[in-house]
């Protein structure tokens, strides 16, 4: 009798031991729905757009130093704005939704032509303000020129990218073909680092990429150097500039320009510059982009540019 009682109590005890201890930390009523409050903005922020040269997260990581520096120097909150395509950033500049933007060279040429996008400064890399388009293929590839890429898969970056689309298109045109018929298949990666990874991983047989991004990416991820190789380097192009929207107040424009030009003299500024792989910012003239302008004029239909 006593044994049975003992058995039963042990049984119940073991059952109790597995009882999960559920303690709700709060009580909410999910049926009580109320309108959301409109977010209050205390101060108009300085809005800085960065074209999707590299992936959105990479952009945030690289540019946060610069953003913080600008915020600290201007005393205004700075908002980093990103969009999927270059054209979207151009649209934001045209409608004055961003004040300052890091754009691609071709995007500047289109913006300057369409709504008078203004140059503010240019980054100096390796002592110059030029960059190139690299034609890259996987390391083990037998391809040695664009001609060998016929019937292969080609990764394009942005629809209006100079180094990622316009220059490779020029190369194909010179071979007497169009990308649509020359390649088996093309696709957009919307950023240069994604295009490098697409080639490194064998997703694409070749791609045209921004030399600045390529060098930067290889320095960040040395493993990449064993996976991709450059088979062709374009002539030099004017470096992607820093621009402002044409409606920005001149005082602010001057203030921002001075801030950027001064950055290399400030320790914090130098760190921020290093983070984006730039030595310093310099003044640049529109004439630096003439060669690009003429190249793009050769393939207007491709870009659908007005």
């Amino acid at each position: 009798m006593r044994n049975i009682l003992l058995f039963i109590s042990l049984f119940l005890l073991s059952a109790c031991m597995v009882t999960p201890n559920i303690q709700p930390s709060a009580k909410v009523d999910l049926t009580d729905l109320q309108p959301l409050p409109t977010p209050s903005i205390s101060e108009t922020p300085l809005r800085v757009a960065v074209a999707a040269v590299i992936s959105p997260k990479g952009t945030v990581e690289s540019y946060s130093g610069l953003v913080n520096y600008l915020g600290e120097k201007t005393g205004r909150p700075v908002e980093l704005v990103q969009r999927r395509t270059y054209m979207e950033v151009n649209d934001l500049l045209e409608t004055s939704e961003v004040d300052l933007a890091f754009v691609c060279t071709s995007a500047y040429i289109a913006g300057q032509r369409d709504f008078g996008m203004e140059l503010l400064a240019a980054p100096q890399v390796d002592g110059g303000t030029v960059y190139y388009s690299y034609l890259i293929v996987p390391m083990e590839s037998q391809v040695r020129s664009m001609a060998h890429l016929k019937g292969k898969v080609f990764a394009l970056t942005d629809p209006i990218s100079l180094t990622g689309r316009a220059y490779p298109t020029t190369l194909v045109t010179q071979l007497g073909a169009t990308p649509e018929t020359f390649f088996k298949r093309t696709f957009f990666t919307y950023s240069h680092d994604e295009a490098i990874y697409a080639v490194a991983n064998g997703l694409a047989d070749g791609a045209g990429v921004d030399s600045l991004i390529y060098d930067y990416a290889l320095s960040r991820d040395p493993a990449l150097s064993g996976k991709v190789k450059i088979i062709h380097i374009s002539p030099s192009f004017g470096i992607p500039p820093v621009v402002v929207n044409p409606n920005l107040r001149p005082q602010i424009k001057i203030e921002l320009q001075n801030l950027l030009l001064d950055m290399s003299n400030d320790p914090v500024g130098r760190d921020a510059l290093t983070a984006i792989g730039v030595e310093k910012f310099v003044i640049i003239n529109d004439s630096s982009y003439e060669s690009v302008r003429s190249l793009l004029d050769g393939i207007p239909l491709l870009f659908g540019l007005p």
């Binding site: 709060a26 009580k27 009523d29 999910l30 049926t31 009580d32 729905l33 109320q34 309108p35 959301l36």
Partner: peptide, 8 residues
């Protein structure tokens, strides 16, 4: 939640 949001 569609229209509205539970405040808590």
């Amino acid at each position: 939640f569609g229209a509205g949001f539970p405040p808590d």
